[in-house]
């Protein structure tokens, strides 16, 4: 055959092409199964997470069970006025921030410290077994943890009072004392989660190039110096991201644990927004009022999360989700 020179540009053709509609039909014919896989998930999301968002309107309504969500009359911001006039709610809001703040201050550095310390352990057996132990409480339910706390701090039988007794102190009824609630709650949280949270930092440390340490050894640096000059600067981005995440989730106090540990005597320092909502809404049936508190909470949380996400995107070019 002869050599064809097909260099002329052909931009369009005379062949009939399927229309846009036909292409979509073709696509669905060929890919319908993908949509069939997606649909259950979407329906679930709509039914269990998005429908409640529609239900949030009761925060602006005088909701009654008999009329239902849609038919209940609008009352504007009345619930919010009541809310901010309510001493209990303001107290709950304050407690939420205080507890979150202390949890952050005392709870945040702990896993970093643990990771740095684990990193110095050369004995693999020791390291593995201690890691196994400190991760464990993360997997234990809050009911059990609360049960342990209640037992350990009980005035007559509890080990804490037993030990205090050795030093001649009178037993303290810890869980009924408002001033003890926060230390116990925050301490329990750290005890339960610090070990597990250290995994993130250990992973970051594992990613540091060994050549950095090798050259430091050649330069005669001590382990302490290497920790400050190499390890910590290397994991600083991870630390910052985790900090941003934590600030984004500032309002997420583990209220389940609070419900398990608090009692009317300690509401003063223990009651947070979600426990307030739980009591007002689910226990006393003031759904609309409690929903208003929940909406307020959700909006603040959303702003915090989005703010945190955009900050982390800007500074680390990795978004959190």
């Amino acid at each position: 055959m002869t050599v064809e020179n097909v260099d002329k540009p052909v931009e369009t053709s005379s062949f009939a092409q399927p229309t846009r509609v036909q292409r979509i039909v073709d696509h669905l014919k060929r890919e319908w199964q993908i949509y069939a896989m997606l649909i259950p998930l979407v329906i679930w999301l709509l039914l269990f997470l998005y429908k409640p968002m529609y239900g949030l309107q009761i925060a602006f309504k005088d909701y009654s069970i008999f009329r239902g969500i849609t038919a209940s009359p609008w009352i504007g911001f009345e619930h919010f006025h009541t809310l901010f006039g309510s001493e209990q709610f303001v107290r709950a809001l304050r407690n939420t921030f205080i507890i979150s703040f202390y949890t952050l201050v005392f709870g945040f550095p702990m896993p970093i410290l643990l990771a740095l310390m684990f990193n110095e352990v050369l004995n693999q057996w020791f390291r593995k077994s201690t890691q196994t132990i400190v991760y464990l409480p993360h997997f234990i339910s809050s009911v059990i943890i609360a049960g342990i706390v209640i037992t350990a701090f009980s005035p007559s039988a509890g080990i804490v009072n037993t030990v205090l007794g050795w030093f001649g102190a009178d037993p303290i009824y810890f869980l009924t004392k408002p001033e003890w609630f926060r230390p116990i709650f925050i301490g329990t949280g750290i005890w339960q989660e610090a070990g597990f949270q250290s995994i993130v930092y250990l992973a970051a440390i594992a990613g540091v190039s060994p050549t950095l340490y090798e050259s430091a050894v050649v330069d005669g640096a001590s382990r302490w110096q290497m920790m400050w000059k190499i390890t910590i600067p290397s994991i600083l981005p991870t630390i910052l991201i985790m900090l941003i995440i934590r600030i984004g989730n500032l309002l997420e106090v583990s209220f389940e644990m609070i419900i398990l540990l608090y009692q009317p005597a300690t509401y003063e320092t223990a009651d947070v927004v979600n426990t307030f909502i739980y009591r007002q809404g689910l226990q006393s049936g003031q759904y609309d009022f409690a929903a208003a508190a929940g909406l307020f909470n959700a909006v603040i949380a959303f702003i915090l999360v989005m703010g945190a996400n955009s900050i982390s995107k800007r500074y680390s070019r990795t978004s959190l989700w």
Binding site: M53, G55, G281, L282, A291
Partner: peptide, 25 residues
């Protein structure tokens, strides 16, 4: 669709609407 999933991690309606929805269902 991805945003639809991610959004549920940023915002949720809270305890009360979730409970009422559960009851209504």
């Amino acid at each position: 669709w991805n945003l639809m999933v991610a959004f549920t991690m940023w915002f949720n309606a809270g305890l009360i609407p979730f409970f009422l929805n559960f009851r209504d269902l």
